[in-house]
Each structure stands twice: as structure tokens, then as C-alpha cells.
Amino acid sequence: MMFYIAALSLIGIGLYVVLTKKNLVKVLIGISIADSGVNLLLISVGYLKGGTAPILEKGLNKPMVDPVPQALVLTAIVIGVATLALAMAVVIDVKRHFGTVELDKVIKMMRGGDGSDA
């Protein structure tokens, strides 16, 4: 139970950051926190009471935890890293064009500069 709450709280904190912060780098940090929360949640869904790592060893005969979520999380982590890298590149691009990474200022500049549409 505690693990679920902890993992979900991480997701919640990430969401809160995304919802309230204007700084794009902070938003990305929020997304990355939420990602870690999701990964922890997946892992805890696969937990078995008293289980050990799902790797066979000679002479060790204990129940094992669910290996599936661990494999899924491996994939999810890599995907998260990849997205973060790409998003960072776009933020650098934003900074190059607008000179700022504050989303509200960027939006204001877009509306003011282009003007053609709201």
C-alpha cells in the first residue's frame, strides 16, 4: 500500500509541476518525476510477498516476483530518457528563437509577433 501511495505521489508531484510551472525546463523535470513514479508503480504492481529477483541461481529456491513489469519498466525507462533528450533539444531551440524558456512569455511573443491569429 505504501509503495502504491509513494509511487502515485511521485506522479502527482510531477503532474503538479507540469500544471503550475511556467519554466519549460521545470516542466520537463516534472514530466521526468512523473515518469519515475510510473515506473515505480509498474514495479510495485508486480511485487510478490517475500519474493526475490526473477533470476535463477544454483541452490536458491525462493519464490520470485513477477518479471513482466520489470521488463516493461526497462522499456519505459529507455523511452522516457529518449523523450527527455528530444524535449530538451526542442527547449534549446525555443531558447534560441525566443531568448527565454518561460512558457507564458513565449506565448505572449507568439501572439504579439505573429498577430495574424489568436
Partner: peptide, 12 residues
């Protein structure tokens, strides 16, 4: 023997 690897590389 590593089930996670088996799933990551083989089953999935």
C-alpha cells in the same frame, strides 16, 4: 536463467 532478460529479448 535471467527471466527479465528472457522477457526483454525473447518473449517481448
Amino acid at each position: 536463467p535471467n527471466f527479465v532478460t528472457a522477457i526483454v529479448v525473447s518473449y517481448r
